[in-house]
Structures are given as structure tokens and as C-alpha cells.
Design a binder for these strands. Structure first.
Lengths: 344, 344
DNA sequence: TGCATCGATGTTTACGTCAACATCGACCGC
DNA sequence: GCGGTCGATGTTGACGTAAACATCGATGCA
């Protein structure tokens, strides 16, 4: 960006001094009223309050941040909000942060190739947030050339232990085991898997857990079909599966891909769940209304968000972090897309 | 919130003075280097840059904001991110703002009943953003008791002309007309409508446009079924519709409700599109993979987001706003959920 | 040579807030 | 009545930055 020559002439709002003058007190007394200190005479307080209202005083948070050395704001790094899980987590994070009195600074990584070119990421290159929650897979961050300032408190919402930062996430392995065992318990000989992208740690966790569950049960492990979380990729994978009469049970790594699988099966005339059972992962609101309603793994995004914020604020205020990853348990939600295999 | 007694002892980062001392120059020269002014000797600049790196200098945005009287940050008021449209718009807004060098402050309205109780909304009660984009229906804002500070630039993304603020939104009326006419053109005698909640202006616009289109074509206007944007509410409405053999064409005010309608029709054994045609609104990524793939109205959220940001920044920098509402056109996307009515 | 010009750099100051310290009057107990 | 205490309020200074102004040496031109 070239030097910004627009001289933004900004009429500054009224400051404490203005209020003080009008109320006939010192600025410090205004400060005390603004911060609800109790050592101010009731009459004085009323006068100050009235003066504030009259001039439309609003405290200047920049001055406050400068004075106090903290911003009461946390940055949240996201890639795209299109992903269901990210959105839900962000929602929960925002709610939790707000309750704790922290503002949310949204830091979108626009493009994996942005590198240093667009330094849209300047918010991190300068002091503006007290800490950061990373809601994208770390390799994306690396590829975007984003580097986190040293000493900045960070919490990662992801499923790799490769980070030096505290981690909070759903218990991916437990969820995938739940899904796979549900299908095996119904009597299916084995379970096929439509996986998330290989670059995703969460996808990797789910895939490995599915595989482990199968081998522990002595089941054959079919080849993995790789998707990229989108319904389209699920549809592509589903077309393969639908063409294979051996397939009776599918575990898709998220609900969107499961939706694509369902469509492919319908197109091929394979009935769900009579011919093929399907399980998803996430439990989006819509999943209950897929056709047929989808059996899936419920993630507790609210807990993930809240725990992330709590961990970050603790890190900010205490300066220390607990390094044990937090794994939020998931739950199996059984609907109509799963049934015992049809007996030949 | 009671007086926060936690004395957050925060080690402040290095400032310009530290860099200046190390580089053997004045603070002002450091400032010039930090702001990429060209009137600094190359050798000096290198020395300063090196010093910055050595001490790990990061400009303090609070001090900057205080000095410059602006924050380069815009607030975005959202209710919940669960809604598909809000999320997509937020995504676009964040991208556009970032490109323009503005940060995003997410301001979640946690509860319609929060009133003054939780003043989690403090970010607006103080100077911390240069302007605000409202992504929720205004009545929700009113009910939450949120009052916008006077003089703060605001842009509303909604479809009512009742505001004093600039408005950007998809052209709801045009989209609803597109949907309704598509069904009529296929030969259906009339079109039933599953509406969004009565409190939503966007829902109102779509409903009225649907009605107008029908009357203009001389078609009977069936009673409206009210939903609340969720797939569940669409399902409830769909059960009514499925039970009525006269129904051959349905326009749902969003894709999620359309999904619920599809489910209800399937459950009742009514075939889509042979027995009943269904059109949605939004064009979520998933809609192409519903069963059958959903004919719907595509909203250009990217444009909505970008135009909102542009309008707001213009308002911030020029201090004036154009009051003509911006209506972003929508497009009909035809898939397999619509067909001519079955001839008796 | 002398003076104007210009570019590089330094000095001062104000932005708004709030902790720390200072002041001042009222009230208390003896 | 007097030292002491306490509560209400005022004064000072510092947080980090950058505009405005000041300084100083080099260069250009008559």
C-alpha cells in the first residue's frame, strides 16, 4: 500500500477535560466517576454524570490502553468462515470473550499466498491485542507467511501436539471411534471412510482413529477416500462408493461430505440406510433434516470456544500456560441414516 | 462487573525510545522509519531497522490511535453466526476491511434480553472503532437495548428503509420475483411460500414480492407459512404442505427451510420435483447436494460485504453518507428440484 | 564568496487517561 | 482545643507516537 495521503480530519470527541470543565471539577474526578470508584461524593458524581451526558462523553479506549498497557482485546485468526466448525467455534469464542470483558479482533488470512505482500496482518505486527486464538490449521498459517510475535500469548484450536502453544479441541479420536463402532455394532463387516484433506490434523486424527478401531476389531481396512471438507468432494467420493456393491457402511469426516455421499447414493439408487449406512461428523443444524436424517458425531463447539478463551486469558493475566491439551468430548447422535446391513 | 482487582502486571514491549537509543538516533527518526517516510538516509534506516529487529520492536497501536485520533478499526455487530447469510457477509466484510487496512472488531449481541445488564457492548460505549456495520436486523438491536453513539458512522446491512443510516443489501424483492416467476413459468398454477420470521425485514420483502408477483400474474395467493429461517421450521411447514395435494410448487425464503420442506415431502412420499417443485434462497454450498439438488436464488454476499465496507469507510473519511440504498442483484440457479407440474 | 535551498535529523509538545502523591476540611477522641 | 484520621478532591507526570518546528551541513548558482 502506498503512503496514504488522505488527511482524515477527524473531529475528536469530547474528553475528560471537557466534562471536567463543565462540571467544575478536575479531570481526575471525572476519571473516578467513569471508573465507578466509590470515593466520590454523590452530588459530585451526579454533576459529572450530567456533564458527561450533556457533552456526549465516551472514554477513549486508545488512551486507556496506552495508559494501562493492555488492550482488553484478543485476536482470532481465521482462514475462511465458510467452514461450519470454524464459524461455530468463532461464535462461541466471541461470546466467551465478551462475557470476560474482552473484545474480539478478527484477523482473516485472506490468501494462503499473501506472504509479506499484503501486510493486512499488520494487527499482529503491532501491539493491538493481548493474545491470539488460532482457528485455522497451522500449516495454512505457515504458508501464508504469518509469523507470531514472540511473547504474545497464543492458544491453538487444532489437534496436533506439534505446537508450543496450549491446545484446545474436540476429541477427534474419540468421536471417530464412536462413529466407527456404531456402524460395526450394527453388524457391518467393515466401514469405509471419506476423509478430510491430508493437510488437516483434525482429519488425520479422525482417519487414524477410524483405522485403529477397525484393526482392533479385526476388520479389513478399506482404502481411504480423500475429500476436502466440502459437500462436492463428498459427492465425488460418494460416486466411487455407490458404484461398489461391497460398501454397506460409510463414515464421512464431516456432515457436509456426508451430504455429498448421500446424494451420490441416491443418484445411484442405493437406499440409505437399507443398502448403505452413513455417519457424519459435526452435527450441524441441517443434518437432522438431510434425507434421511443423518446419524453423526456432535461436537461441543461452545465448550471448545469457552475453554480456549479461558486458557488464553489465564495466559495473558498469569503469564503462564498449562501445556496439557484440552480434549472436549463428543457424542454420538443416532438418526435414520444408519441401520443393520441387509441380510442377503 | 465489579471492580476488577486483578493487577495485570504487563511487561511492556520495547518502544521507539529503546530503538532510538540503540540505533543512536532520535525517536522521531525511528518514527519516520516505522512509517516508511522516504526522507531518511539509507544507512540510517538500515541501522534503525536492525535495532528494531534486535529489540523486537512493534509499534504500539494504542499510542498511534491516540495520536492520530482514529483507530483504523470497524465494529461489526452480529447476533449469532449460525445464520448462513450473516456468516458469509461477515466473511466478505472482514476481507474487504482488511484489504482497506481496517481491523475488524466483532461485537456479538449475546442475548436479546441483555439490556443494560451485561454491558458487554462497552466497545461502542467508548471510542474504539471508527465506524460500525450492523449485520443483524435492527429490531433485534433495539430489543437488546443497544444504543449507538451519536456521530458514529454506521452502515446497515438489511432491507428496511426505516433507518437513518446507509443501507446495503441483496435485492430481496428481485430475488423473490425470480423464484416465483420461475415456478409460474414452468406452468404451476400458483406458488406456496414458507416465509422467514415476521420480525425480519428481509423476510418481509421476499414475502411481499412473492405476493405481488402472484397477483400481477393473476394467480391465487395461498396462505403464508411462517418459519424462522431454521431447517426445523421449514420441516414443520413442509408437513402442512405435504399433506395438501393441491400444492405443486413451494418457494422457501431460504435454503435451510427448503431443506426441511424437502424432508417433509420425502417422508410423505411426495416426489420432488415430479409431485412438488421447491425453490430456496441463498445458494449455500450444500444446496447443490441436497436431494434433489436445490433450485435457488444466489446472493452475492461478497459484493454486499465489500460495498458495505466501502460505504462505511467513505463515511468515516469524508464525513458524509449517500442515502440511496444499495441493492445487490441476485441470480436464479436452476437445479433439479423444480420441473413443470405433472399433467393430470 | 555569499546566500538561498534542501535534505537529514533533532527537539518539543499534545493526544486522553489514570496512578501516585498532595492538599484540605471535617470529624474524632481525649 | 489539639493532634490524628479519613474522605473528597486537585496536581503532576508518564504511557508511545508523530506533527510541527528547529537546526545544521551540504549543495547550487550568481
Amino acid at each position: 500500500m502506498p503512503t496514504d495521503e488522505t488527511p482524515v480530519r477527524r473531529r475528536r470527541g469530547p474528553s475528560m477535560a471537557d466534562v471536567a470543565r463543565l462540571a467544575g471539577v478536575s479531570g481526575q474526578t471525572v476519571s473516578r466517576v467513569a471508573n465507578e470508584r466509590h470515593n466520590v461524593d454523590a452530588a459530585t458524581r451526579d454533576r459529572v454524570l450530567a456533564a458527561m451526558r450533556e457533552v456526549g462523553y465516551r472514554p477513549n479506549s486508545a488512551a486507556r490502553a496506552l495508559r494501562n498497557g493492555q488492550f482488553r482485546s484478543i485476536g482470532v485468526i481465521v482462514f475462511e468462515l465458510s467452514s461450519f466448525g470454524t464459524t461455530r467455534t468463532l461464535d462461541a469464542v466471541a461470546a466467551a470473550a465478551t462475557v470476560s470483558g474482552y473484545a474480539i479482533n478478527l484477523l482473516p488470512v485472506l490468501d494462503v499466498n499473501q506472504r509479506a505482500v499484503t501486510n493486512a496482518f499488520s494487527r499482529l505486527g503491532e501491539q493491538a491485542v493481548d493474545g491470539v486464538i488460532i482457528l485455522i490449521e497451522a500449516h495454512t498459517l505457515d504458508e501464508a507467511g504469518v509469523q507470531l510475535p514472540e511473547g504474545l500469548p497464543v492458544v491453538v484450536v487444532d489437534s496436533s501436539a506439534h505446537y508450543d502453544y496450549p491446545i484446545v479441541d474436540s476429541n477427534q479420536a474419540q468421536g471417530a471411534r464412536l462413529a466407527t463402532e456404531h456402524l460395526l455394532d450394527l453388524g457391518h463387516e467393515t466401514v469405509w471412510h471419506v476423509s478430510g484433506p491430508p493437510t488437516s490434523f483434525a482429519a488425520d486424527r479422525r482417519r487414524r482413529s477410524w483405522e485403529l478401531t477397525l484393526t482392533q476389531r479385526g476388520c479389513e481396512v478399506p482404502p481411504v477416500l480423500n475429500g476436502d471438507w466440502t459437500a462436492s468432494s463428498g459427492y465425488e467420493a460418494g460416486r466411487m462408493l455407490a458404484a461398489n456393491p461391497d460398501v454397506t457402511a460409510v463414515f464421512a469426516a464431516n456432515d457436509q461430505m456426508a451430504l455429498g455421499v448421500l446424494r451420490a447414493l441416491h443418484e445411484r439408487g442405493r437406499v440409505v440406510p437399507d443398502d448403505v449406512s452413513v455417519v457424519g461428523f459435526d452435527d450441524m443444524e441441517e443434518s437432522a433434516h438431510f434425507w434421511p436424517p443423518l446419524t453423526t458425531i456432535l461436537q461441543n463447539f461452545v465448550d471448545v470456544g469457552r475453554l480456549s478463551v479461558d486458557a488464553l486469558i489465564h495466559e495473558i493475566q498469569a503469564g503462564e500456560h498449562h501445556h496439557d491439551p484440552v480434549a472436549v468430548p463428543t457424542k454420538l447422535v443416532v438418526r435414520s441414516s444408519t441401520a443393520p446391513p441387509r441380510r442377503p
